[in-house]
Simulated assay, not measured.
Amino acid sequence: MIKIFEKRKIWYGISLAIMLIGLGFAIAFKGLNFGIDFKGGTILTFNMGEQVNQDKVQEVEKVISDFTKKYSARETNNTEIELIIQTGAIETEQVKELKTKVKEEFNLGDDYLVQEENISGSIGSELTRKAFIASILSCIAIAIYIAVRFEFEFGVAAIVALIHDLLITLSVYAILRIRINSPFIAAVMTILGYSMNDTIVIFDRIRENKKKLGKVETGELINSSISQTMRRSIYTSLSTLLTIMMMVILVPGIRELTVPLIIGIITGTYSSIFIASPIWATLRDKKDKKNPKAQYGKKKKTSEA
C-alpha cells in the first residue's frame, strides 16, 4: 500500500516550491505574459502564397523589427503567418506601412491579408474580470455540490485542490513565459472539471471504504482508497494526454488551448491523488478532536471489563 498520507508534507512542499518559483519569475518579469486578448493590440494574418516554415517566419520578423520590437509572429497553417502587435507599440499609420512592406518584400498578391483585427485594452480588462468571476463561481458551485453529496470537509478539500491546480498552472506559465490568451480561460474551465471528476472518484472510494473497513485510522483509509483508484486515475490521464499531445504536434494553430490542458491534466491528477485527500484527512482530524463523540475513520480503544 502506498503511503500517501504519511508523506503529505513532501507533496505540499513540491507544490509550494513550484508556486514560489513561479511567483519569483512573475515578479522578475513584472507579471504574467498576457497576450493581446487581455492587453489589447493588433492581429495581422498574412497569406504567404507558399509553404511556410520557421525560416520564412524569421524573414517576416526581420521586416517587422524595423517597425516595433513588441510583437510575436508564428505559423498558423501551411501558408499563413500570424503577427500580433501589442497596444501602443506602433501607430496606425505605421501599421499601414508595415502591411505594404510585407506585401512588397515577399511579392504577395492582393489577397495577402487574411485577417486584421484590433482589440482595445478595455476589452482585455473586461475579459480578465469575467474570467475571474467565472472561475470563482465555478469553484463555489463545485464546493456546494461536493458538500451536499459528501460532507463539508470534502468540499473544502476539493476547492483547495482546484486552487492548487490553478496556481500551479499559472506558475508554469510564469516560469516558461507562455503567453496567456482567451483560449487559456477555456482550458482552465476544462481543467477544473477534469480535476474535480478525478477527485470525486477518490472521495467516493473513501466513503465506500469507510463503510467496508469500519473504524480505521484516517491515514490507512486514505492510503487504501488512493491505492485502489490510482491505476484508474493514471491510465485515464495518460490516454487523455496522448490524444492532446497528438493535437499539439499535428494542429499547431490550437496550441494556446492544448498546452494549458496538458499542464492542467498533469496538475489535476497530481492534486487529486496527493493533495485533496490528505487535506480532507487533516480537516476531519481537527473536527474529530473538537467533537470526540463524532469520530469518523478513527480507531477507538476498548477497555476490558
Rank of each mutant, 00 (worst) to 15 (best):
K3L: 12
F5W: 07
K7F: 00
I10S: 03
W11I: 12
W11C: 10
W11H: 10
S15R: 00
L23W: 01
G24K: 05
F25L: 06
F25N: 05
A26T: 10
A28K: 15
K30D: 14
G31L: 04
N33K: 10
F34R: 00
F34K: 05
D37R: 00
F38E: 05
K39H: 06
G40F: 02
G40W: 01
I43V: 14
I43E: 04
E50M: 08
V52H: 06
V52L: 07
N53D: 13
V57A: 01
F67S: 05
S72R: 10
S72L: 10
E75L: 09
N77F: 07
I81R: 01
I81N: 02
E91I: 09
T92M: 15
T92C: 08
K96V: 12
E97F: 10
L108S: 02
G109Y: 04
D110K: 10
D110F: 05
Y112P: 00
V114W: 02
E117Y: 11
S120R: 06
L127K: 04
T128G: 09
S135D: 06
C139T: 09
A141G: 14
I144V: 14
I144L: 14
V148W: 15
R149P: 03
R149A: 06
G155C: 04
V156C: 09
A158N: 07
I163L: 15
I163V: 15
I168T: 06
L170A: 12
S171I: 01
V172I: 15
L176I: 09
R177A: 07
I180M: 05
N181F: 05
M196E: 03
M196D: 05
D198Y: 05
D198L: 09
D198N: 11
R205Y: 06
I206W: 01
K210V: 14
K215H: 12
E217A: 10
G219C: 07
G219S: 08
L221T: 04
S227R: 00
M230E: 02
R231C: 11
S233M: 03
I234F: 02
Y235A: 11
L238S: 10
L241Y: 02
L241Q: 08
L242A: 15
I244V: 13
M245W: 14
M246G: 14
M246Q: 14
V248M: 05
I254P: 00
L257H: 05
T258S: 08
L261I: 11
G264V: 03
I266G: 07
S272C: 07
I275P: 02
L283M: 12
R284I: 08
K287Y: 09
K289V: 11
N291E: 14
A294R: 14
G297T: 06
K298Q: 12
K298C: 11
K299R: 12
K300V: 15
